[in-house]
């Protein structure tokens, strides 16, 4: 039986106070397409990380570190690490 692959998802979003002109452009396009009732759009990044080994505490800590140093620039971005079933 194939071993299930541990998949970790890291979501990275610009902090709320940072202007997101890309999200604003998407919002503008939605309005032009007739999607009314959309208050705002913000655009972010999603990373899907598949591990070769088990997702133990050490691996989880390592991913947290990786997310905070490389995947997100914490000066302007927030990130969230979660395990996907």
């Amino acid at each position: 039986m194939e071993r299930p692959v541990a998949r970790v998802v890291v979501d990275v979003m610009l902090k709320p106070e940072i202007l997101d002109p890309q999200g604003q452009a998407v919002h503008g396009a939605l309005t032009r397409l007739g999607f009314t009732g959309v208050g705002s759009v913000r655009q972010g990044k999603r990373f899907e990380i598949e591990l070769d080994g088990d997702l133990d505490d050490a691996a989880r800590a390592r991913i947290e570190e990786l997310a905070g140093t490389l995947l997100a620039n914490t000066v302007i971005e927030d990130y969230r690490v979660r395990v996907e079933d």
Binding site: L14, I18, L19, P21, Q22, A25, N73, V75, I76
Partner: peptide, 17 residues
């Protein structure tokens, strides 16, 4: 230099896109 944090802040997408 901003990514290294030798300098504070960051450079983001031009507001005009």
């Amino acid at each position: 230099l901003c990514e290294t944090h030798l300098l504070p802040g960051a450079l983001t997408r031009n507001d005009s896109l």
